[in-house]
Design a protein around this nucleic acid. Structure first.
Length: 568
RNA sequence: CGGGGCGUAGCGCAGUUUGGUUUAGCGCGCAGCGUUCGGGACGCUGAGGCCGGUGGUUCAAAUCCACUCGCCCCGACCA
């Protein structure tokens, strides 16, 4: 491709609305064009990279034995009502009606459609197992699109679904797909780690996410450097610091005046926050929930929501708190009646806590579980944090941020059961098909690759996903010898099957070099009168500041070697 | 949905507080000609705007008021 013919302008100035590096670079390189919030066109360079990523994904999926299909974006709302996920998806679902006023949705994902299709084509355990996948457009009315391609409303996703007669069989396919995912990230030049994840509203057993580690990532990850275990903070468990344990003493009321928050209370009483109990009130599906946790910890709302099996969980309003007879600032589980109490395990890991007295200006000293109060449920509802200990190896945990570039989980029968997708076993008994599902956002993967592969000049594409392999860069377009050499090398490289971006413009060297760095094509070949006088061309890797002067006769061999060497 | 910011030429911005000196400007980019050229060259000439939209106030609105649409960021949310 000649740059003079290439559609899409490179920008010198940084677009004002772009805050993340991948967004800025995608815009500056002329790769994407925004149509609306979270809705983008992919221009020729971007599409080439997307296609390469798709092909890597396709190869690795095919290698697991998965079969490619293509399912519709237009889906009857009815299917979503049947699966029960219409409400779970809420406003994220794009809805529309056809001319007969039948309700449709634009598919945000395809569990429903694929399960329906599987159900129609499976009768017996003999028809199982199989895995289907597609590379297709998803539409989600995200509340807040952001960061260019990082969170968008219309995007391409590879989504795969596996169908099994047994859990053991699901486990084995799951492992294969995880390996395929690792291969995909490696081949795309994107370091990604696998962590434990919450399976979300969809339910299911195991769930893992693949994360590209970057500060602009939307997820917080708790990670252990000693054993390598990692988990999304939504899911992470940890061993908390011990609170002082002393002989149990009698409970007594103490005046604490205006000291209401944990900070004020600990300063006033000169104790550590781990010697206090904190109360947090939630509104879970129309009922009030009172959560009790040690004062030095925070409630993990995802864990709590899951524990309560609540569709909706939010902090209770001041009004609701008051209505429940709770005095905020000195709320207490002691003597509380008529409200569901959930206690974090940490209430067991200390003694003689200071808790509220549910009486303005007073707190209770020496509160002990279960002597002084009991909970309906005692469970782990605490947020893991940096400095806690790893539950696997007791190492010290730390926090990093990550960008989700893949998600796999064991769905089980949650969808197939509702949609009546059954098989009969050897004995002729029907069972819902056991499922797994596996997703990779292709566009987001491209954005992640840029986030992790760039410098202050521009993108540094890994060879495997670069829009072109070679940037042919002749300087001084009025020099006949340069042009002749460049034209013939361009033709020769194309004949050899290489993908070449030929900078045939009459621009100054500075402009060409800067554009080359911005576009990030892995190999740059510079042809100039100066190098030709020495009987050479200049060969340079984008990832390497040094260029090599290569004798004309050796240039092709050098290019071949460089490409083989940098191909992943 | 809560909080903040922004809509003026393809891009980046000034002008808006205090309405009139603006025929609405600057830089980049764009077109033509010439001189240049190893890390975003220079000169000359030129094109390009219903100042997001609608309605008001006024002799007069990019500028004041009301409504509205759109975009970005933080939070909530996120199979």
């Amino acid at each position: 491709m000649r740059i003079s013919q290439l559609f899409g302008k490179r920008l010198r100035e940084i677009p004002a609305d772009a805050d993340t590096e991948s967004h800025r670079l995608l815009l500056r390189a002329g790769m994407i064009c925004q149509l609306s919030a979270g809705i983008y066109s992919y221009m020729p360079l971007a599409l080439r990279t997307l296609r390469k990523i798709e092909n890597i994904v396709r190869e690795e999926m095919n290698r697991t034995g998965a079969q490619e299909v293509l399912m519709p974006s237009l889906q009857p709302l009815e299917l979503w009502q049947k699966s029960g996920r219409e409400t779970a998806m809420g406003q994220t679902l794009f809805r529309l009606q056809d001319r007969k006023e039948r309700d449709l949705v634009l598919g945000p994902t395809h569990e429903e459609v694929v399960t329906d299709m599987a159900g129609r084509n499976v009768q017996s355990y003999r028809d199982l197992p199989f895995t289907l996948y597609q590379i297709q457009t998803k539409m989600r009315d995200e509340p807040r699109p952001r960061g260019g391609l990082i969170r968008v409303r219309e995007f391409t996703m590879k989504d795969a679904y596996s169908f099994h007669a047994s859990e053991a069989d699901l486990d084995s396919t799951y492992k294969q797909i995880v390996q395929a995912y690792r291969n995909i990230y490696r081949r795309c030049g994107l370091p990604a780690i696998m962590i434990e994840a919450d399976s979300g509203a969809i339910g299911g057993k195991d769930s893992q996410e693949f994360m590209a580690i970057t500060d602009i990532g939307e997820d917080e990850i708790i990670i252990c450097d000693s054993c390598g275990a990692g988990a999304n903070v939504e899911k992470a468990c940890s061993i908390k610091l011990k609170a002082p344990c002393n002989p149990v003493q009698d409970m007594e009321e103490i005046a604490t005046f205006e000291h209401k928050t944990i900070e004020q209370l600990t300063a006033f009483l000169k104790i550590s926050s781990s010697q206090t109990l904190k109360a947090v009130f939630y509104h879970a599906d129309e009922t009030m929930v009172f959560a009790v946790i040690r004062g030095d910890l925070d409630v993990n709302e995802v864990k709590l929501k899951k524990l309560l099996r609540a569709a909706d969980l939010r902090l209770a309003s001041d009004k609701e708190v008051k209505h429940a007879g709770i005095i905020a600032g000195t709320a207490s589980p002691v003597g509380l009646r008529g409200i569901k109490i959930i206690a974090d395990e940490s209430v067991l890991s200390g003694t003689n806590f200071v808790a509220g007295a549910n009486k303005d200006g007073f707190h209770l000293k020496n509160v002990n579980y279960p002597r002084d109060f009991t909970a309906d449920v005692v469970a782990d509802i605490a947020k893991a944090k940096a400095g806690d200990n790893c539950t696997v190896c007791n190492g010290i945990l730390r926090t990093i941020r990550g960008m989700e570039v893949g998600h796999v989980f064991k769905l089980g029968v949650s969808i197939s059961d509702k949609l009546g997708a059954n098989f009969v076993d050897e004995g002729g008994t029907p069972h819902p098909i056991i499922m797994g599902c596996y997703g990779i956002g292709i566009g987001r993967l491209m954005a992640a690759i840029i986030e992790l592969n760039h410098d202050n000049k521009g993108i540094i594409w890994p060879m495997s996903v670069a829009p072109y392999q070679i940037n042919l860069c002749p300087l001084y377009s009025d020099n006949a010898e340069v042009v002749k050499r460049a034209d013939s090398l361009y033709q020769e490289l194309i004949n050899l099957g290489y993908e070449v971006l030929y900078d045939d413009r009459a621009e100054s060297p500075g402009v060409k070099f800067n554009d080359a760095d911005l576009l990030g094509i892995p190999l740059r070949i510079t042809i100039s009168p100066r190098s030709l006088e020495k009987g050479c061309m200049e060969v340079k890797l984008r990832s390497n500041p040094q260029a090599d002067m290569i004798a004309l006769d050796d240039v092709i061999a050098k290019i071949k070697a460089s490409l083989t060497h940098t191909c992943i």
